[in-house]
Design a protein around this nucleic acid. Structure first.
Ligand SMILES: [Mn+2]
Ligand SMILES: [Mn+2]
Ligand SMILES: [Zn+2]
Ligand SMILES: [Zn+2]
Lengths: 126, 126
DNA sequence: CTAAAATTTAGAATAATTCTAAAAATTATT
DNA sequence: AATAATTTTTAGAATTATTCTAAATTTTAG
């Protein structure tokens, strides 16, 4: 776990390690800040709301998580870093992965001058 | 303008008419609530923040506008109702339309049981 | 014209997130 | 190891977008 954090330039401290262990257990997850706070509490990890925000945002900037916004006012952090897309279950406010090869995208438009693609996000609302 | 509102089951009142006139001038727009408040002020339309929220949300529910969320905490209302996609200029916090036929999507994944597609949103962040 | 219903509004409330600045922990230096 | 410097964590305040409330105003119906 520490090597994972180190590799991304994040110093492994107690709470970073604890949150990393909650998240990177091998299964793909889409967690809200609130989910992480709840998970931490369930594991008796003593931390603060501010630290959870700090840590998740740091992980996202470092490339350990991908931040996904589908609705105003609630961000999800995605542990699946490979290229993929999403179903969004509107009634359940929940994301589910779509493998990248399940959707074929071709013929992209030409980009405005001086721009590069940062990401292509396909969200299928269901 | 009144007939447009009536057609969508929205009673044409003073402020609804005024906001509709700001928005539906024939050009495609992606406006934030704040933009509309500014536009209204510039035209000496006396209204309130709550009314702008109410009106834009009503228009969206009625299908006169499409609500687009690309970032946490800021919704855009899109006057372009035809099927299309978006470039999102991250640094400028601005959307630009991509015509539907500029992107070819094929081979959609099969849907979870009992679900129907509400929309497919492709956002290219640049 | 009057009464009923719907809309608008100011300001309070809520919710997600960020900021602040002090305390605690970690790392570097003697 | 002890001390100093740096970084992280934290509680609570602040900020921002949005919604709610309940009273005032406007619109519609009789
Ligand atoms: Mn929860
Ligand atoms: Mn503005
Ligand atoms: Zn995902
Ligand atoms: Zn658009």
């Amino acid at each position: 776990m520490d090597s994972m954090l180190n590799k991304h330039g994040i110093r492994p401290t107690k709470i970073r390690r604890a949150i990393a262990e909650l998240l990177f257990d091998g299964t793909d997850k889409h967690v809200s800040v609130d989910d992480v706070i709840d998970l931490a509490r369930a594991q008796k990890i003593k931390t603060s709301v501010a630290s959870v925000y700090n840590t998740l945002n740091q992980f996202a900037v470092a490339g350990l998580l991908r931040k996904v916004t589908v609705e105003q006012g609630r961000a999800f952090f995605d542990t699946n870093l490979s290229e993929h897309h999403h179903f969004y279950f509107e009634d359940e406010e929940r994301l589910e992965d779509i493998p990248v090869d399940a959707i074929n995208i071709s013929g992209l438009p030409k980009l405005p001058k001086g721009r590069r693609i940062k990401s292509i996000d396909v969200t299928i609302r269901i």
